[in-house]
């Protein structure tokens, strides 16, 4: 039994459970966010009949159950079918709630959206999200405690500036990896056009919270090293904000690369597009910092 598991037990059952749930949501974000930015999935949800929704919901349990038997979102491994089945119920429910909140954030579900349309969108978007949650534990596997200690020592020995450059590079690579296939699509101007200023601020806050949770709460590999990182932005909050700014710059660069933004565009349009693409970029950037 690893020291990581012993460490997890020391946190107490409620905090451990909260960490497990944050890990599940983080895994879902990493796997599900590209499809959350895909209008065809919204449309499929919009025109889906209720009987199909129930079919998708039942179908969703099959891969989620199988993944929960081998991977899952908890640090413990499910051996009994009963445990895997109960975790699958939690995985799907968590995906449904998370996707609902994200669709509200993206204004794809509003107070005027008909119930059937909202349910269709939630059910379809929850499927990749739930699969991501069910492989969360294997997606960014927790490093053995020994490796973490070694990494911590290495990090402490490193130069602050060099460590910061590594962070910036990792954030950039991660942001490009997740957001590059979203950047050229019509979803960005569509979503940005429907967002008032208050909603853009909510997007910024959500991006920061999600990025923080993935790196510093979810208990993925390297979390301990991240907390002891010697770079210029060594505090978790500072690192989260600085990395988000890097993600925004990368998002702007990708939009410029695909000619979705030009120097003639008004600043308000530039800001809204960059913030909308900034969410997947921040999620990718967070994963990138955990992966290096």
């Amino acid at each position: 039994m690893g020291a990581a598991d012993a460490d997890a037990r020391d946190r107490g059952p409620w905090r451990r459970e909260a960490t497990d749930l944050v890990r599940a949501v983080s895994g879902g974000m990493l796997f599900g966010i590209p499809l959350l930015y895909t209008m065809e999935v919204w449309w499929i949800g919009s025109q889906t009949q209720t009987v199909h929704m129930l079919g998708v919901l039942v179908f969703m349990f099959v891969p989620v159950f199988l993944l929960n038997r081998t991977a899952g979102f908890r640090t413990t491994q499910d051996i009994r079918r009963r445990d895997a089945a109960m975790d699958s119920v939690e995985t799907v429910a968590l995906a449904v709630v998370s996707v609902f909140l994200l669709l509200v954030l993206l204004r794809e579900v509003t107070a005027t959206t008909p119930l059937e349309e909202a349910l269709g969108k939630i059910v379809y978007e929850a499927t990749p999200f739930a699969i991501g949650s069910a492989i969360a534990q294997h997606m960014l596997r927790r490093a053995p405690a020994e490796a973490e200690d070694e990494a911590t020592e290495e990090a402490a020995d490193g130069k602050g500036l060099q460590a910061t450059l590594v962070d910036v590079g990792a954030t950039t690579i991660g942001a490009v990896f997740i957001a590059f296939n979203v950047a050229p699509t019509d979803e960005i101007p569509m979503l940005a056009a429907a967002m008032p200023a208050a909603w853009l601020i909510a997007m910024v806050l959500a991006s920061l919270v999600i990025s923080y949770c993935i790196v510093f709460v979810a208990g993925f590999s390297d979390q301990k090293r991240r907390r002891n990182q010697p770079g210029i932005f060594q505090h978790p909050m500072t690192e989260t904000v600085a990395s988000y700014l890097v993600s925004l710059v990368v998002a702007a660069g990708m939009l410029w690369f695909f000619q979705r933004l030009t120097p003639e565009d008004p600043m308000s349009l530039v800001v809204s597009h960059v913030i909308v693409l900034g969410l997947p970029a921040a999620v990718g950037g967070a994963a990138g910092r955990l992966a290096v």
């Binding site: 598991d5 059952p13 413990t76 051996i79 939690e90 429910a93 449904v96």
Partner: peptide
């Protein structure tokens, strides 16, 4: 990663809330 111990009260609360969401 280790075998699954008995469910804690926190895990039961999550499960109950999840059942409510799906219902």
């Amino acid at each position: 990663m280790s075998g699954r111990p008995a469910r804690s009260p926190a895990e039961w609360v999550t499960f109950a809330a999840s059942v409510v969401v799906l219902v």
